[in-house]
Simulated assay, not measured.
Amino acid sequence: MTAPLPARALDTVLDRSLVLGYTKVGLRVRRALPGWPADPRPGALDGKDVLVTGASSGLGIATAEGLAALGATVHLVVRDEAKGGRVRDEIAARQPGARLRLWRCDVGDLDDVRRFAHDFGSQVPTLHAAIHNAGVMPPQRSESAQGHELSMAVHLLGPVVMTEALRPQLAGGRVVLVSSGGMYSQTLRADDPDYRKGDYSPPTAYARSKRMQVEMLPLLADRWSLDDITVAAMHPGWADTPGVQESLPRFRAMTRSLLRDDAEGADTSIWLAATEPAPPTALFWHDRRARPINLVPSTRADESARATAWAWLAQATGL
């Protein structure tokens, strides 16, 4: 259903205002507008397997629970098995009959990602969707086991390696990269993807890695289209996640009354995984609508920068 012009105009105003569009206000207004995309039908994921990384906190828990409610067998991919086990049991208590499996993987360690993908692929022959939700914002510059800046390793390199290794299982399926509206503040730093230059800023490193996700999206979608895999990136808006609570306490103090809860932040990830037909590939989504990847001209990347970034990504991940 196409929204009427006044509804589309208000939606765009909300999106560009940031403060209104990214908070719970924006989502609640959009849900009330004509043309709001329909919820996935009950049981939309019956008999289907869906993988969620970072499934032991915040948006990951809400995403896993929402997928389980639609009938999916949800594979919770976590770094801390004890914490993940508690989350699995809590979801199962709230949703009796939910089909949940727990897997351990450090998404920032590419060797561990390959180990996990081998184990997972040997046991799960078909994967409907992979939702790459795992996130970090280290307080100082940190490196992965392979020597990459940790935000970039967790948000881009690990998801690419995991998806690439699971292409046979994902054939005909969907991939969702959980990004951030913070990426709008950054341009593509193809010259310094591992943040080795200048003073390190955790929020900047986070936003740079999310910008890289979105800039690489069309190239990844083209590569994985050979297996009929659709790829989307989305941002959840401003949600009151553990990451915000721990890493951005001042921001949280100023905006707490407006922040989305985890379920509101996870809504579009769940919708992208479950709605039919599959949404178009290679788009950036927020509140169930495709959004532009630049709001100001100064953040636009040229083809040369994208080519340089792609060459680095291919080398770092072994594509």
Results as ranks from 00 to 15, higher is better:
Asp15His: 15
Ser17Tyr: 02
Leu18Phe: 15
Pro34Val: 10
Leu45Met: 14
Asp46Arg: 15
Gly47Asn: 15
Gly54His: 02
Gly60Pro: 07
Ala64Leu: 02
Ala68Tyr: 03
Ala69Pro: 12
Gly71Met: 03
Leu76Trp: 10
Asp80Val: 04
Glu81Met: 13
Gly84Ala: 09
Arg86Ala: 14
Glu90His: 13
Ala93Met: 06
Arg99Leu: 13
Arg99Ala: 14
Cys105Ser: 10
Leu110Met: 11
Asp112Asn: 08
Leu127His: 10
Ala129Phe: 08
Ile131Trp: 00
Ala134Tyr: 05
Val136Ile: 05
Pro139Thr: 11
Glu143Asn: 02
Leu157Cys: 10
Pro159Arg: 05
Pro159Thr: 07
Glu164Pro: 01
Ala165Trp: 11
Leu166Asn: 04
Gln169Ser: 11
Leu170Pro: 07
Ser180Glu: 03
Tyr184Trp: 15
Asp194His: 09
Tyr195Gly: 12
Tyr195Arg: 15
Gly198Phe: 14
Pro203His: 10
Lys210Arg: 14
Met212Gly: 04
Met216Val: 09
Pro218Glu: 02
Asp227Glu: 09
Ile229Val: 06
Glu246Pro: 03
Pro249His: 08
Glu264Thr: 08
Trp271Ser: 10
Trp271Gly: 06
Ala273Trp: 00
Ala278Phe: 00
Ala278Glu: 00
Arg288Met: 11
Ile293Ala: 04
Asn294Trp: 08
Pro297His: 03
Arg300His: 03
Arg300Asn: 09
Arg306Thr: 09
Ala309Thr: 12
Trp312His: 14
Gln315Phe: 07
Gln315His: 12
Leu319Gly: 14
Leu319Glu: 06
